[in-house]
């Protein structure tokens, strides 16, 4: 399997990458770790005329803490997120999510920014990024802007990124010690992608749920916040019955995917079961 021919550029700064992107417009694709784009190019599902490889842009790397936020460079690999002491200490659900992606080799090379920008409906990151209410920093020829995770995913494989823009950083507020989270998924056995992936993040006072956010991937064309589940539990006791009743709403109002791996009815059931288990995990 050989990709179509393309012209290759390896810029070393964001500015250089942006100017290549505005020069080549829709003909160009950004290459990060390549673990979504290269498979698509080998199958000729993607045939960009120009490939802009940003892996040598140092400013897009690294994970740091700043003003109570975790700042994740778009080129941070899944392995870096999985193994980072800072991430494990401040937002362990991110490390947990990273560890559920693909396999060791995929996690060594694939990046969080690449995964989010590609917006595969069965990718893992979107569920957790949504549940953590992350801010996505984007730069383009028109300057810099911040998009909320809830506004980022628009359609199948389509995000708020314009053709001349690059996702540069993911910002996540570091919660107080009272907040816990769990990401839980059912792996498609061959590919490792999420047939359903649910991230639940909550804080409680005694047994009462104060705040809760639930992000779900793999179930619909677009990852989503299960707002019906959230409103059914916020302010209520985190009993097994209440959690189960709220989780029943996990697929309410959602256009559910159907493919060779799972029927609509099966996916809908998975969404409910994994939502219940993820909330139970976060609450325990």
């Amino acid at each position: 399997m050989i990709a179509s021919s393309f012209e290759y550029f390896a810029p070393t700064s964001v500015d250089e990458a942006l100017s290549l992107l505005s020069e080549h417009g829709d003909d160009a694709k950004i290459l990060a770790g390549g673990h979504s784009l290269i498979p698509a190019m080998k199958l000729r599902l993607a045939e960009p005329a120009v490939l802009i490889d940003i892996q040598r842009v140092e400013g897009l790397k690294g994970i740091s803490e700043s003003d109570g936020k975790l700042v994740i460079g778009a080129l941070a690999t899944h392995h870096e997120l999985e193994s980072s002491d800072l991430v494990n200490r401040t937002l362990p659900i991110l490390a947990q999510t990273a560890g559920e992606i693909g396999d060791v080799q995929v996690r060594n090379k694939g990046t969080i920014g690449g995964s989010l920008s590609h917006a595969d409906p069965a990718a893992d990151w979107p569920a957790t990024i949504l549940a953590l209410d992350a801010d996505l920093k984007i730069v383009g020829s028109g300057g810099e802007r911040v998009v909320k995770a809830t506004d980022f995913f628009e359609e199948l494989y389509t995000t708020a990124l314009e053709a001349d823009e690059i996702l540069t950083e993911i910002h996540v507020s570091i919660p107080d010690g009272n907040t816990t989270g769990t990401y839980l998924k059912l792996h498609q056995v061959a590919s490792g992608f999420a047939l359903t992936g649910v991230a639940a993040v909550l804080s409680k006072s005694g047994d009462v749920c104060e705040n809760i956010a639930v992000g779900i991937t793999g179930v619909s064309d677009v990852p989503y916040r299960a707002s019906e589940v959230e409103s059914a539990l916020a302010g209520r006791a985190l009993t097994a019955d209440n959690i189960a009743a709220a989780a029943e709403k996990a697929a309410d109002g959602v256009d559910i995917l159907e493919d060779i791996h799972a029927s609509e009815a099966y996916r809908s059931n998975l969404a409910k079961v994994y939502t219940r288990r993820a909330i139970e995990g976060a609450a325990s």
Partner: peptide, 13 residues
């Protein structure tokens, strides 16, 4: 230092 699947990486990378 990273084990990778070399079928999913370009030589230029």
């Amino acid at each position: 230092g990273q084990a990778v699947k070399t079928c999913t990486m370009l030589a230029v990378q």
